Amino acid sequence: MKTAIKLVLIYLAMQILGGLAVGPFAMIYAHIKYGSIERANDFVLAPALLAGFVFMVIYLWWQGYLTGDKQLYSPVSATYLFWSAIMGISMIFMIDFLMSHLTFLPNFLSDTFDVLQSGWLGILCVGILGPILEELLFRGAITKVLLKKYSPVVAILISGLLFGIFHMNPAQIVGATLIGFVLAWIYYKTHSLIPCILIHIMNNCLSVYLSLKFPDVDYTSDLIGEPAYTISLVLSVLLFMLSWRMMNTYKLSNTTTKV
């Protein structure tokens, strides 16, 4: 548990370090382009986020969390990836339904995401690079450590809770926790990050696409309307149950995780 919390705190520290590393260059660029450093914040966010990602990957690699485990990057069957995608899509839809009933939760990072999604580097960080790093950290390092100390159920619950709390944004914590449980369970079943990364990238990219394509729409129900939304929700629940069953019973050569 201490190691898991330590890794989360180190990641936050790496993000601060990324901001410190990129900040001076952003101020220089802003001064050259606008004659003032007041607009440096317009340029610093995405590069700082990317720098923080790089620093954290280097740290995880240097500390041996990402090396010495061949199963961590092992491929799974196309069938398993298919059901992973089905589970991911259905989970995304169900979380959207839940969050549409939790509208009282504030979104402290709304403006931050708007800035990130205004440029290609920010979109790349949110949609692809961020999910990859978070899977390396939360499943490849944190969940793996927890599984060595706790039972699978306890390890999955702690991992999901840490993943949710890590987002530190009330509007994200509930959804991140729920999908964190699922991703931790998939890692436990396969000991591979590949299906976890697939679901995470799919979730973030879909969120970015909908945010850019339909900026005035907050939830899927507002986008597709009734009765299509209710039918889609019921279908999502059924598909989630089916995909869970298929993924839980499917035999893989790399499903053994030592605990």
Score class of each variant (00 low, 15 high):
M1N: 12
K6G: 14
L7K: 07
V8C: 08
A21C: 12
A21V: 12
A21M: 13
G23K: 10
M27I: 10
A30N: 02
H31G: 14
I32S: 12
K33T: 14
G35Q: 00
I37Q: 07
D42K: 09
I58K: 06
W62F: 13
T79I: 14
I86M: 14
S90Q: 09
M91H: 01
F93I: 14
F93M: 13
D96I: 08
D96E: 04
F97A: 06
L98A: 11
T103A: 11
L105V: 04
P106N: 05
L109F: 00
D114K: 01
D114R: 06
V115R: 11
Q117E: 11
Q117A: 04
W120H: 09
G127M: 08
L129A: 12
G130D: 11
E134D: 05
F138M: 09
A141W: 01
I142D: 06
A155I: 02
M168H: 03
M168T: 09
I173M: 11
I173F: 04
G180S: 04
G180V: 06
F181Y: 00
L183A: 13
Y188V: 02
Y188W: 13
T190M: 05
L193A: 10
L193C: 03
I201M: 00
I201G: 00
N204I: 01
L206Q: 02
V208A: 09
L212E: 03
I224S: 04
L233D: 06
V234A: 12
S236Y: 03
L239S: 10
S243G: 04
S243F: 12
M246Y: 14
M247G: 03
Y250I: 15
Y250T: 15
L252G: 15
T256Y: 15
